[in-house]
Write a protein that binds this DNA or RNA. Structure first.
Lengths: 250, 250
DNA sequence: CGTCGCTTTGATGCGTCTCAAGCTTCGTGG
DNA sequence: CCACGAAGCTTGAGACGCATCAAAGCGACG
């Protein structure tokens, strides 16, 4: 998955511009773009942060794909969310001392770390920005609930369709979808971790979706042949993503 | 379920006192306790707010039990969280225009509504309080993720044990547990809605838990006979609840 | 004292898991 | 440039967990 965030724009400015319900003032834009960012690369399959960590900084995904996941003590793994470029997935560490999930690099990853202290200072001076970031964390909660519904109340076939619909909309919103096709660098085993099924069953369901003519997935790229039909199968309603108007072309 | 919130304390003061990581200043306490509250009663099974609503106020549960739930368009219902007295379950409406879930009264319910405007004014004057309420919404997100893990990665028997462990800890934190026993006014059908299984299967799992000597559930009251064993079965680790020290006696 | 909602139990079927084996792809070293 | 190994994909057979359908028991309340 290639970088989609312009190098000349501070990632937090980008994020807030796409999420906030107001236009940034000059002072706010200045405060955001002078936040200190430490850029770090991670290899695929590395953990960026781990459950029970006590982070002292938040981070934005600059390029690549990241995944929030939890595991039962018994070792069963569940991916809770994927993070696309521009996302700030561990903002909760600013207000909750200990992390209740891990975040790993699905692909090679470029990450921008911002110290908690700088964020707190910024929020004191610019309370509207605090509200905007609060909003981003609420949207993440909304995604978590939709995943809980999807994974416990839909069978594997519509469940997978739903995941593909969500990813398409979210990747499209950051310009990573071309002609109903986007990079999806997940193994079938990893897809199973997200959907709560085994890789064997992922394979069979994928075959069904392929045979229905809805999608093809190969070479780490998903192509949707019939967006409307896929949405119908998935019962997909994007309300829970809380996108603003025109964030998505679909 | 009887009221546990003292009538003479403003519910929002109560909530923040149990959640915030700092001691309230006099001004902050004053601001909270002068928030206008409109108390309203709901009968069991009524909806307090519905998915796609655009609320203009938040509310605190004063007494009774409430449930956040979503349904698929096909009609399958999933409870995402239970709310005990003191909780403020729809705080996200302050920052997200349209609700992505419904909240219903499980039992008869007493609710205190507070207008968004009053909250926004308070947050402008007292930014630390905004941080404290932000924290409460993050904790809800954490619960949603744990439920997603529980419902998709544990089988019905440990899954139910996990739900009981969570409810016991959270109800204990608000003083509603006596001698490892608490009110649990849910039908087996409703338990199925929370656990993602049918009421028939709830009945069989409940029987197993009873036969194991772990619990009894009758007359709307759950008694845990062996807390340690129930936790072991459930692989229960309360970290995700983000309680502060001494919030729970267990 | 009959009715209605809830609980309990049985029989059968479906969705997904588990185990197992063969196949494809691709990167690496000879 | 080919051989090989490792990782991932594909497919089959049988087992298991939970759903579904159905019916009978129980308890509370008018």
């Amino acid at each position: 998955m290639s970088a989609a965030i312009q190098a000349d724009t501070h990632p937090f400015v980008r994020k807030i511009e796409t999420v906030a319900l107001f236009d940034l003032s000059l002072a706010e834009r200045e405060a955001l773009s002078t936040l200190p960012v430490q850029v770090t690369r991670f290899d695929a399959h590395q953990d960026v942060v781990k459950e029970f960590d006590r982070p002292t900084r938040c981070f934005a995904v600059l390029s690549g794909l990241a995944a929030t996941y939890k595991t039962t003590p018994e070792g069963r793994r569940q991916v809770m969310a994927y993070h696309v470029p521009g996302d700030v997935p561990d903002f909760q560490s600013l207000h909750l001392e200990v992390l209740d999930f891990s975040i790993s690099a699905v692909t090679d990853l470029s990450i921008g770390f911002v110290p908690h202290g700088a964020l707190r200072t910024m929020f004191e001076d610019h309370p509207r920005l605090a509200g905007a970031f609060w909003r981003t964390t609420l949207i993440e909660g909304s995604l978590a609930r939709e995943w809980a519904l999807n994974n416990s109340r839909r069978e594997a076939y519509p469940r997978m369709a739903h995941l593909f619909c969500e990813l398409m909309v979210r990747l499209d919103a950051v310009g990573l979808v071309q002609e109903d096709s986007f990079a999806l660098p997940l193994t079938q085993y990893e897809l199973g971790d997200a959907l709560g099924i085994t890789s064997v069953h992922v394979n069979r369901v994928l075959k069904e979706l392929r045979d229905s003519g809805l999608i093809t997935l190969s070479g780490g790229r998903l192509t949707v042949h019939d967006v409307a039909a896929l949405r119908t199968v998935a019962e997909f309603d994007p309300t829970y993503l809380h996108l603003r108007r025109n964030d998505s072309r679909r």
